[in-house]
Design a protein around this nucleic acid. Structure first.
Length: 572
RNA sequence: GGGCCCGUAGCUCAAUUGGUUAGAGCAGAGCGCUCAUAACGCUUUGGUUGGGGGUUCGAGUCCCUCCGGGCCUACCA
């Protein structure tokens, strides 16, 4: 049995996440976690909300609430939606937790002791009306190059020219529109990543099995221009982890907080402590996952994230870990994703474009979404959600191939064998061929799942479902029933057992439907079908089964058109 | 501007890292079956691999160039 630590990129707190966010980290992470648990491995699967930073403060302002209250409410909403999608986190933590505060401050202190922190005084634009320093993106004005009036302080979206906020003509706050901006001096801490460049570079080079998307982004940051740059790790904000040097004050840094990207990945660790603290368990229990001096040596740590997160996970966070000089677990494998687009454009949280997690669950159960999203995961390039494709895939794969198989087998069993697993007969060449087919397919499925090749896994799983229909067609128990009841009995007995196997191997993708399949079979046996012959004999003759309610219904053309129209604009 | 990724059948994607005649699923066409959610099975039509040039015995794969899409470019997260 292996031990596998899995983290999903932690979703930002400022609103409900859309399906693109979901498929970019949390959902594939859940698939992997469920699969590894099903294979008997010990899994710790962690996620949390990422709560700090300017956008959280602004979102709270808009909601007219104190930021702490806003975040607490949004955490509860995101937690409920995660549960709704069946995301099987062992702990859904918060980056604002006391555990993360302490650990972030501790690691900053360690980095300072190691000489890896530098204090830098710099000038930054301050808005009197807003009462805050403005990040470059929050300054708007007229582009000096092209005259575009809504250019941002970091870049003009019209002519793509990179800008400095002071270049803008008539700069104003993007938050309030105020123009009382002034340059103010402010002091910040920088993490001296340059000092760790060679170590990080060697470490990345050693990861030859990582997706090219992951390593190419890391290499770009390591090698571009003057190479890896030092990074500011503090901000002038109210909401965040107060800058402290361990448990001591940090002179000159009063009133400042750590940069959200400094504390957010640390929450992966702190979340594990939240996990044990919440149950009154010993620290040793979480430390055996995270401390290589306390049992984490044999842990395989896998992270899931969208491509925009890669630099922070390949460089900044490892720099924090390595620089601390403490024996924290480093990531072993990073699975990164491209973006899912929505019907010809991008999903957008700020514009409210696309389908959001709450809306998705309002119109269909989680399994429909899980199946489509995972079987179309944007692994090799950006992919696109369209209602036509969604309807076609769900109807064909889930309703026709899998759902109908369960239906035809259980109903036939009910009408001809009184709803019990029939006895009699012995397997013949047809059954032997099926077993060989299933063994080969299952092996391919396992290989793909272990390599986290998600679309290939889904395709192989679907092929295994199809094999059941092929077998049934060839065995034709409805024909055999009249002249050779034993032949029919063999086929139905096998097909019923096949449903149990489908339930077990499909559970990582469609956990709710899998549970309903097992319910219908009156079975709680979730043993992985490592020996196919044995697995096809789990349900013994005489065992009573039921016909389940329709496993997956079809999406009608009317529904498709209704939803297409309903989600064509932006949410309020 | 720079860097990276992508472009394969009407649609969604493969192609053992340069090796036979580029494969699946969906959609389309035909046949079969009647247990089943108008479902299932079998057969089958679709390709100048974005354009052009080059290297090679051999290129979807490597190089150059052009076109198109996307991401990043360090103070959004």
């Amino acid at each position: 049995m292996d031990r596998i630590l899995i983290t999903s990129a932690i979703p930002y707190i400022n609103g409900i996440k859309h399906l693109g966010n979901l498929v970019g980290s949390q959902l594939p992470a859940d698939l992997y976690a469920r699969y590894m648990r099903a294979r008997g491995h010990e899994v710790l699967f962690l996620c949390a909300t990422d709560e700090h930073g300017t956008p959280a403060e602004l979102a709270a302002d808009r909601a007219g609430k104190p930021v702490a209250e806003y975040c607490a409410e949004m955490w509860a909403i995101q937690k409920e939606l995660a549960d709704g999608f069946g995301l099987s986190f062992d702990k859904y933590g918060r980056s604002s937790s006391a555990q993360n505060h302490r650990l972030t401050q501790h690691l900053a202190g360690r980095l300072a002791e190691a000489g890896l922190i530098e204090e830098v005084t710099e000038n930054q634009l301050y808005s009197g009306t807003d009462g805050r320093f403005l990040p470059d993106r929050y300054v708007e004005g007229t582009c000096p190059e092209c005259g575009y009036e809504r250019a941002r302080g970091d870049q003009c979206e019209n002519c793509t020219k990179q800008l400095d906020p002071i270049d803008l003509i008539e700069p104003r706050s993007a938050i309030s529109g105020s123009t009382d901006l002034e340059m103010r001096e402010t002091k910040h801490l920088y993490l001296k990543q340059r000092n760790l460049r060679q170590q990080l570079s060697d470490w990345i080079d050693s990861k030859t099995d990582w997706p090219i998307l992951t390593t190419s982004i890391a290499r770009k940051w390591l090698d571009d221009g003057d190479g890896l740059q030092d990074r500011g790790i503090t901000r002038d904000l109210d909401w965040g982890v107060p800058v402290m040097r361990g448990d001591k004050p940090w002179p000159g840094m009063e009133g400042k907080v750590f940069y959200v990207w400094f504390d957010a990945p640390i929450e992966y660790i702190a979340c594990a402590k939240e996990w044990t603290d919440g149950r009154g368990a010993e620290d040793a229990e979480w430390e055996r996952w995270w401390r290589t001096d306390k049992g984490a040596d044999d842990v395989r740590y896998v992270q899931f994230m969208g491509k925009d997160n890669v630099p922070f996970h390949t460089l900044s966070f490892p720099a924090t870990i390595i620089g601390s000089g403490e024996p924290w677990k480093l990531v072993d494998y990073i699975k990164s994703f491209n973006y899912l687009n929505y019907d010809g454009g991008q999903f957008s949280t700020s514009l409210g474009r696309g389908v959001f997690m709450d809306q998705a669950l309002d119109i269909l159960p989680a399994d429909y979404w899980r199946w489509w999203l995972l079987s179309h995961a944007p692994e090799s390039s950006d992919s696109e959600f369209t209602w036509d494709n969604f309807q076609a895939s769900v109807n064909k794969d889930l309703a026709d191939v899998l759902g109908n198989f369960v239906s035809r087998v259980t109903k036939f069993c009910r009408s001809r064998f009184g709803g019990t697993v029939p006895s009699g007969g012995t397997p013949g060449p047809g059954e032997e061929a099926l077993i060989a087919r299933l063994e080969a397919g299952l092996k391919a499925y396992e290989t793909h799942m272990e390599a986290i090749e998600i679309r290939k896994s889904a395709a192989e799983l679907r092929a295994l479902w199809t094999a059941g229909n092929e077998y049934l067609q060839a065995a034709a128990p409805w024909t055999a029933y009249g002249k050779d009841p034993d032949r029919a009995a063999v086929a139905v007995r096998l097909a019923l057992n096949l449903i149990r196997i489908y339930a077990v191997i499909s559970a990582p993708f469609i956990p709710d439907a899998s549970a309903r399949m097992l319910d219908a079979l009156n079975s709680s046996d979730t043993a992985w079908p490592s020996e196919m012959g044995d697995a096809l004999a789990v349900l013994q003759p005489g065992h009573a089964i039921e016909v389940p309610d329709m496993l997956f219904r079809k999406i009608t053309d009317d529904e498709r058109e209704t939803w297409r129209a309903q989600f064509a604009g932006t949410r309020d």
